[in-house]
């Protein structure tokens, strides 16, 4: 197990390094931030001075070298726009996105998995077909349009919930969160649903397909032949077998929800990291973009690492073969 973890950790590290190169090269290949930052009437000397001040006059490999050395000291660069460390700016916005993603994840798993199992157990029933039809809408309608429709129905027409913003926040485990106050919660619900809908549909389809497959297995029939209750057959024998693909998708999707909640955050004016990224791209604020992408890579790699560890708990066969290997 330890060998497996160490090896898996090495792979994660390699992924981070590879991504650092790609991200840095990619971002530094586009546009010249000095053109955006400095006034159009600036003299040639002013432009040269600004370029030197931002360190953009050095060759690419030197810039990358400086970035790497600084990154090891926890410094991912200073924002061109705010003049503050890029990482600090991002981390300020992280709790809002994190909270949104967590609530969305909770909704999509809590609703998606049971509905998927239900539809998988009774694929021919009206309820099963309705769930499937709904899930097609869930991931074929564009995310921003779903968001706008949610605002139109629940905020504008019914007036039940606010259309945007974060509402009242309270401190929880050192983070500012919305879900502990009624006002915050009312602001949280719509964006969370918007972010969850796609993942929920995905989970419904995945869970349904896996449930149908597992239901045909002899061990399910054998479990029934042992006289177990239908509940135990579903909750233990079937559910535990479908959890591996479900955990994989949850892991991947949690990473993408954290990293790319951009559309939802934009539609609902949610002050998270996604909105910061859009603003930074518009201003060509390279350090913030790079820091954001590096943080994202780190989060996704970490989640995948955790998913692999969870696998080994879910499936004894993985545990054993990896221990041997």
């Amino acid at each position: 197990m330890i060998v497996y973890l160490v090896r898996r950790f090495g792979q994660s590290l390699l992924a981070v390094v590879a991504m650092a190169v790609l991200v840095f090269m990619g971002v530094y290949a586009i546009g010249n931030p000095v053109d955006v930052l400095i006034s159009p009437e600036a003299s040639q000397a002013d432009i040269a001075a600004a370029t030197a001040r931002l360190g953009l006059d050095k060759p690419l490999w030197q810039q990358f070298g400086i970035f790497v050395i600084n990154a090891f000291q926890g410094d991912l660069g200073t924002s061109f726009v705010y003049g503050r460390p890029a990482l600090d700016i991002i981390l300020e916005r992280l709790p809002a996105t994190f909270e949104l993603a967590m609530v969305a994840l909770f909704l999509s798993v809590g609703i998606g998995v049971p509905l998927g199992v239900w539809a998988g157990m009774r694929p021919e029933s009206i309820a099963g077909r309705t769930i499937m039809a709904g899930s097609i809408l869930g991931f074929s309608l564009p995310n921003f349009w779903q968001g706008m429709l949610l605002i139109l129905v629940f905020a504008v027409l019914l007036g039940w919930l606010p259309a945007g913003g974060r509402g009242q926040t309270t401190e929880f485990l050192g983070m500012q969160v919305s879900f502990l106050t009624l006002d915050g919660l009312s602001h949280l619900i719509l964006p969370a649903i918007n972010l969850a809908l796609f993942k929920m549909s995905l989970l419904i389809r995945l869970t349904r397909a896996n449930t149908r497959e597992v239901c045909l297995q002899d061990y399910v029939k054998f479990a029934r032949a042992k006289g177990l209750s239908g509940r135990r057959v579903v909750l233990v024998h079937i559910l535990k077998n479908i959890m591996i693909p479900v955990v994989t998708i949850i892991g991947l999707e949690l990473g993408s929800m954290l990293a790319f909640a951009i559309v939802t955050e934009t539609v609902f004016a949610w002050p998270g990291m996604g909105k910061l990224l859009i603003d930074s791209i518009n201003l060509l604020d390279r350090p913030v973009i790079v820091a954001y992408l590096m943080l994202t890579v780190l989060i996704i790699v970490m989640i995948n690492f955790m998913v692999d560890v969870i696998y080994s708990f879910l499936d004894p066969r993985i545990r054993l073969s990896e221990m041997k290997g």
Binding site: Q217, D218, Y219, F222, A225, V236, K240, N241, D315, R317
Partner: peptide
């Protein structure tokens, strides 16, 4: 009680 054909498939692999 019942015993099935394929012993590889009748026991739940994750329990």
């Amino acid at each position: 009680a019942m015993i099935f054909q394929d012993p590889m498939m009748t026991l739940n692999p994750v329990l």
